[in-house]
Each structure stands twice: as C-alpha cells, then as structure tokens.
Design a protein around this nucleic acid. Structure first.
Length: 802
RNA sequence: GCCGAUGUGGUGGAAUGGCAGACACAGUAGACUCAAAAUCUACCGCAGCAAUGUGUGCGGGUUCAAGUCCCGCCAUCGGCACCA
C-alpha cells in the first residue's frame, strides 16, 4: 500500500463528479425530493474563510446522505453579489464593479470546488446578472402594483460614511451594518416597502415552521406585536384631540399628564397659539443633535418641556392635565404621544418626580412613594373599575367605557417598521420607476425589464445623498410610459437584501426566461426542506424573504405560504486566540491553506468535529492534525481486509450501533459525536486486527458524507463495485445494537463497590441476587440492615443500607 | 433595564436522572531510529506512596442516585433597548 496522496485523489474525484454530473438535481419529478439550502455568499475580494466552509458543511453532509437514501436532492449555490464592498473596491482601484464581481465569483468558485462540496453547479445564481435581476425588478413592480411600495419623507437612518439611507434592520444598535460608523437621523424622502402589512402573517407563520427556538423568538421580538388601545384626549383650548396608544388602558384613571415626541405635528399646527414655542423649538433642536449613543446614555435622566397653551382633558375623569414634550417618546412608534401614568410606569414615574407632577395610585400592591408599581393588583381610585383584581377584566371593562364615550378603541402596534428600500449607490438593481410631472410615479413596463444599469465613468456617490446614476443624463432623461411626456428616471438602487429575498425560488428553475420560475418546478421543489445559515440574518434576510414569499403566495405565484420548512444556524469559527476572525486581527484561516496542507476531507471533518455545530469554537491547528491522523488510519485499514462478506462476531453489534449513531446524529446536526463514533469504531477495528469486506464497505458509506474523496477512492480500490456516490445508505438492526452481556455497577448507598458482567436480559431480582453474591457487596452490607434495593436493567444495582 | 443562551480536565468538547470527562488535542514515559519527523505502546481531573478522598460557576433543595430536575445568586456571550 502506498501512502495516501490526498491531492491526487481529491482532484481525481472532483473531476469525476464534475464530468458525470453526480450532484445535478434531476428533472425527474416522480422521485421524492429534498431541498437543502445554505445562505449564498457575498463574493468579497478576500475570498472565503473557514467560517463559510463550516456553514456549508452541515447540509453538505445531509445532502450526500439524502442522495444515498434515494432522494432527488437540490443543493444549490450562488452569489449575492450586489453591495457596497465591491463598489468601494471599484472606486478605489478604478475598475468596473462588474469586473470585480466576476473576479471574486471565480475566486469563490475555485475555493468551493476544492473542498468538494456537492453543489449542483448547473444552477448557479448571480444576483447581478441581467437574467436574474430582471425578476427582482419584476417582483418589485408587482409590489408597486399592489400598493406595497411607497415614498415618504420622514426621519431616516443615514450613514454619513457610506452615504446611504439604511433600513432599521441595517442600523441595529445605531451603527451602520456595513462600515460600523454612527448612524445619524436625517429627514429625506425615500422608498419603503410596506412590510408592516405582513406583520401578523409573518408572526402567525412562525407557528407552522420548524425553526430553532431562538430564531423564532428573535423574529417575534423584532416584529414586536403589542395589544392595547388608542385613546383620544380632548384639547381644552381648541377643537382638537390628541391620540395616544397604550397597552394599559386599565390605568386611565391614573393619568396625570401627557407626553408627545418633540417632532409631533400638533406643535407646528398650533405654534402661534403656544406661548413658549421658542423653548419647545430649542428643546427639539437639542434632541436632534444627540447621537443615538447619547440618547441611550441618558435613559435615567428625563428631560422635557411643558407646552404652555395646550391643556388636555382626561376622557374618563374629565380632569385637566398638562402636556409635555420629551425625547423619551418616539415619533416612530404608536402615535408619537402617550398618556403618562407615573404610578405604574417607570419612565413616567421618573418624569413626574423630576417635574413635580401628581402620582395617583390605581393598582394596589406597591409603594408608589418609592417607585412605580408595574405588577398586578386590585384596582383603586378608578371609578367603575374599583375592586377588579384581574388585569384582563379591567382592560375589557375600560374598553367598554371608552366605546360608550366614543373616545377610544382596542388596537395593536408593532415595533417593526416599514422597510426603507433604497441605496444611493451604483452597484444595485435600478428601481424601475419613472417620475412624471403629470402622472406621478409610473412603473417601467414589464416588457422593458430588465432596466439595465447604465455604463458609468465615476462610481463615487453624490455629496448630498444622491446616487451616481443621477449624474447620467442619458439614464435619467426618459419619456413617461403613460403619457409620453418628458420624465425622469428614479436613480436610487435597491438595497443589498433585494436579490436574496427570492433566490431560493430561482434555484428551482434558474434558466427560465419567461417566468421567475415555472409553476411546475416550484410545486415540486418548494418549500425548502432545510435551511441553514447564520444567526445574523435572522431579523433581516429571513424576515425580508419570508415577506416577499408571502406576497407572492397571496398573488398565487408560489404554492406554499412559508418558504422554509426548517431553519438551523451554525456557530462561528473563532481565531486561535478565541476572538472573532477578522482581517484586522490577522487571525483569519484560509481554507485553501488547509486544503493544500491536509486535504479537503480533513478540513471538512475538522470543521464538523471541532465542537457543537451550533456553537462558536476556536480554530486549532493541532486538532486539524488529529483529523488528518484519522484519515490516514482509514487509508491504512485496507491492509487489514479479510474476504468475509459478513460482519464478524467481534464487531457486529459495534457496526450496528455506529451506523445507528451516525445516521441519527446527522439528522440532529450532532456531527461532532457522529465523527467521534466513527473514530471509536476505527480504533476497535484496529484492535480487532482485521476487518471484513462488509464492515469496511459499510464504514466507508457512513463516512462518505464527511470525507467523500478518500471513501470513494477506497471503495474503488477495494473493488466493491460501482462508485460510492451511487450506493445506498446502510441500515441497522435495532435488535443487534445490544450486546449479549452488559456491564453493570454495584453500589452500596450510591458508592460503587464493584462491576459485574451479566446477561443483558437479567431480571431485577436476578441482578440484586447476583450483586449480593459479590464479596465487596457482602462485606459492605455486613451488620447493616437493608433499607431499599434498586435495580436498573442494563445499568446498575444500588442497595441502601443502614 | 428586558429577552435568550452558556458555564464540565492543561485545551476543544462527550454524557435518555444511573460508572463524569466518550472522541480528539496537548503532555509524560517507552519502542522503532545514528538522529529527528512520522508511526506504534502505555499513562494522563485534582490531592495522596497508597487505601482512599474529592471533583461539572456559587449557595440551598428534591431523589436510593443530580452536570442533568427545582429555588436563589454570580459570571460570560448574544439579541433588543425610553416600544408607552
């Protein structure tokens, strides 16, 4: 036997699979299907790092196993290639982003192929290709047609460094998701997708899918549905009312003041009648200056100004109450105005203490002289509500009262906001809308799609948040599709998340130029059976794509209401220093280096063996060597092969147990213990001194999804017939997973005294009797009385004595 | 502040309430070698010569039996963050 030349063997089988189309998803729709999806990468100039490899290796193993189980497997890959880093490289090096993108895709493709992933390379997607983004624009126009696209001039998140408007999802924590600089709030007219219209559907859909619990929870929190009531408070001085949203209408009797956001429109409406308008303007200006960071730092110190000239009237008590402006009330949530109940809300309490406002207790249970009480209790000082002890009843009763008075009704609110859908940059899908002075916003006709990106000399964004496209007159100038008069094209492009919001549908039918995918292909392949990716996409890509899919479902264009039946997430690979891998820290591991030095099979095994798949774990070069040793020992096993076509007595139950363990662990994503079980089996095979043909063949099959190259090679070298990737997955016999005898432990008062080999089906009485015969047990029991005897079949005997 | 997760040897990590530390890494000793690497064999939680004791973040509890279940803390990580 010659030494294992992994470079030669891996190249050989990668070529074989490629030439034979081994992993092409079949068009034969009579076979049972399985659709595994991994998040397609953004092709950056740095190439892939080992984190990508781990992210794809999980479902890679599942895909290879499924094929052996007889499924028609769709395991596609593509590139989510629009985005700022590519554009920034283009600007810096003065190369067209198309060229940069093609170069990066080529780099990623060669890396992925070297690892031997079983992707269907005939279905590769590139979101920046005309044949693809045509359909991204097409879906956008469908949304436009159905009233889900609108423009609005409001406060937006703006990144001064990237010079783009960001969605709420892209500015989490007040930082730009692309460059991590501080976000500022700006008033700007931008595009929105009405995702809030789907808030309830997105929430309800979570009940029907199999996602990791924390994935569901994060989405629920992001959508942030709350139920409560809208209440109108009359303004004494004018024929006007101030509408608020509250989750606690039961506390209406405790309202002693109101607070509105500094930007609330009522201030502008009555600015001539408000006597301290200068003070209000000054406060508003001060708030606008504060960064997101400062606002969160000042949580404990409430500020605000009383509005002189506006007095509100509590609709239930008819009492007159003051109105304040304060930045602890946000214009973007609810109605931008609140009723303040200082006795039972911590923020209102702090505000009332600072401004010397009355605090009226309406729920018993706390000490409101010390702090706000937010718990439950008996209603007091609350007129018709007095004596009610249940919050639900109190709310219901109050809603009745409000209805009678005609000044309020039940309502719901969401934290999720509409999706700011635009970038003021070049490298994105052009938004296919024309602005006409006569007709307003007009859709580009469907037969003119794709609306192509024009050639540009200079990709630099404009200074005042304008897209580079705005500078290209030939692009901007057009005629209105409706009335034919001169008009202007929209120059914003779509955000990075557009292309990835429907890519899983395109994989079903990637070369279709008549539809985004044929109905037949969608019906066969959808939904995605298993989707794996990173936790960082849970509240963006996942929600966005579920929204697009549900929209298409409502139009009858897709056949399932949810795109993903199951969602899991892999943990990060950290650097050897235990820190997140990053270029600046210099702790990034390049998969190419590992493949070159140890081989693709070793890399694949290690990223799955290094720890719990869902948890973060640091890279360790030494542990990579451990996997290399394992692979070499597998290679060496061919020298121990006997002629027998059956399992040997020595290894029979071991084989069944390991096949069972590996089969089940793959389904549970416990790849580390699956590999450990195969290592144990391999050690046992070496200890047995020989291995039968059947044992070796079955071992190669269960190892194949993890280490496909060496197993294919050995399968061929041992003459088992055919190629391994076309064999069937092995089954196990539950009855043969148990040994004839088992080792049990004998304990006295829970302390181990001795161990004992007994027949596996011994009864409890037999076990206890046998245990008592043991010298160690007899000795420990001498002179003591037995309190209790416990026997657990196959495990232990415990005798409690006194 | 709220929500969630995690806490086990020198390291990564295993353990349907039933022998804690599987599997691997590192380490120690030995074999092979002129030598080294590779490989193979043995040992390998801590304390102790040993018998033995002790041990899964901390403090309680349930149980014949707790890493695992319950109560109360602490720490680390992640998400949200004045959401009315």
């Amino acid at each position: 036997m010659k030494n294992y030349d992994f470079a030669e063997v891996e190249a050989k089988w990668q070529k074989y699979w490629d030439e034979h189309g081994t992993f092409k998803a079949s068009d034969d729709h009579s076979k049972p299907k399985y659709y595994n999806l991994v998040e397609f990468p953004y092709p950056s100039g740095h190439g892939m790092h080992v984190g990508h490899i781990k992210a794809y290796s999980g479902l890679e193993v599942v895909s290879r196993k499924r094929r052996l189980q007889g499924y028609n497997v769709l395991f596609p890959i593509g590139f989510d290639a629009y985005g700022l880093p590519t554009e920034n490289t283009a600007i810096k090096d003065n190369i067209h982003p198309r060229v940069v993108t093609d170069r990066n895709i080529e780099l990623f493709t060669s890396q992925l192929k070297k690892v031997g992933f079983s992707f269907d390379w005939s279905r590769v997607i590139d979101t920046t290709e005309e044949g693809y983004y045509k359909w991204t624009q097409w879906i956008f126009l469908k949304m436009f047609e159905n009233g889900l696209v609108f423009r609005d001039k409001t406060l937006v998140n703006y990144c001064p460094s990237c010079k783009v408007v960001l969605s709420n999802e892209d500015s989490q924590g007040g930082k730009c998701d692309i460059c991590h600089s501080d976000i500022v709030q700006r008033t700007k007219e931008v595009w929105y997708l009405r995702i809030t219209e789907y808030a309830d559907k997105l929430l309800e859909g979570l009940e029907t899918v199999n996602y990791l619990p924390n994935v569901k929870l994060q989405q629920q929190n992001w959508i942030g549905k709350s139920t409560g009531a809208f209440v109108n408070f009359k303004i004494k001085e004018f024929d006007e009312s101030l509408r608020i949203y509250t989750t606690r209408p039961d506390t209406l009797y405790g309202v002693t003041f109101m607070v509105i956001a500094p930007e609330h429109p009522i201030i502008q409406k009555y600015r001539d009648q408000i006597t301290n308008i200068d003070a209000l303007d000054a406060y508003k200006a001060e708030c606008a200056k504060k960064s997101e960071f400062e606002r969160t730092q000042l949580v404990k110190d409430k500020t605000g100004v009383k509005i002189e000239g506006l007095t509100a009237v509590n609709p239930i008590t008819k009492k007159e109450i003051p109105v304040y402006i304060s930045d602890y009330v946000m214009m973007g949530y609810g109605t931008g105005a609140i009723m303040a109940v200082p006795a039972h809300d911590e923020r209102d309490y702090e505000f009332a203490k600072k401004f010397g406002i009355d605090i009226i207790e309406v729920i018993k249970g706390g000490d409101i002289s010390k702090a706000a009480y937010t718990g439950d209790g008996e209603m007091v000082n609350s007129g018709v509500l007095n004596g009610i002890t249940n919050k639900k009843d109190a709310i219901a009763k109050m809603l009745d009262e409000l209805a009678k008075l005609g000044c309020g009704e039940a309502g719901v609110q969401y934290k999720m906001k509409d999706w700011a859908f635009n970038r003021q940059r070049y490298w994105g899908e052009p938004i296919p809308i024309v602005h006409c002075d006569t007709c307003g916003m007009v859709a580009v006709p469907y037969d003119e799609l794709p609306l192509k990106l024009p050639p540009v000399e200079n990709f630099e964004p404009g200074t005042d948040g304008e897209s580079p496209l705005a500078k290209i007159e030939s692009f901007v100038k057009c005629s209105c599709p409706k009335c034919g008069k001169p008009a202007r094209r929209e120059t914003d492009t779509m955000p990075q998340w557009a292309g990835s919001s429907w890519y899983f549908l395109r994989y079903c039918d990637p070369h279709n130029d008549k539809e985004f995918a044929s109905k037949e292909a969608l019906e066969y392949w959808m939904p995605v059976d298993w989707y794996n990716g990173g936790m960082e996409h849970v509240t963006r890509h996942m929600i966005y794509s579920r929204f697009w899919h549900k929209f298409l479902y409502d139009l009858g264009l897709v056949n399932t209401s949810e795109p993903y039946a199951k969602r899991t997430a892999q943990g990060l690979i950290l650097g050897t220093d235990g820190e997140k891998m990053s270029k600046s820290r210099g702790n990034v591991v390049d998969p190419n280096d590992v493949v070159k030095q140890y081989g693709a099979d070793v890399l694949r095994l290690y990223v799955l063996f290094m720890g719990d798949y869902e948890k973060a774990a640091p890279w360790s070069e030494n542990s990579v060597k451990g996997c290399k040793r394992f692979v070499d020992r597998v290679w060496g096993l061919q020298d121990k092969l006997t002629d027998s076509d059956d399992y040997s007595d020595a290894l029979r139950s071991n084989m069944h147990k390991t096949i069972k363990k590996v089969s089940e662990d793959i389904e549970a994503m416990k790849f580390n213990t699956a590999i450990a079980a195969m290592m144990t089996l391999l050690n046992d095979m070496y200890n047995a001194g020989s291995v039968t043909k059947r044992e070796f063949r079955d071992f190669l099959i269960i190892l194949y999804p993890f280490a496909p190259h060496i197993t294919e090679e050995l399968y061929e070298a041992c003459g088992f017939g055919g190629v391994l990737s076309e064999q069937e997955w092995v089954s196990w016999d539950e009855a043969l997973c148990v040994d004839a005898t088992v080792e049990i432990v004998c304990q006295i008062n829970g302390k181990i005294k001795c161990k004992l080999n007994i027949p596996k089906d011994s009864s409890k009485d037999e076990m206890i009797a046998l245990a008592k015969e043991q010298a160690e047990i007899a000795e420990a029991m001498a002179g003591k009385s037995v309190v209790k005897e416990i026997a657990v079949p196959g495990k232990l005997v415990n005798i409690v004595v006194k």
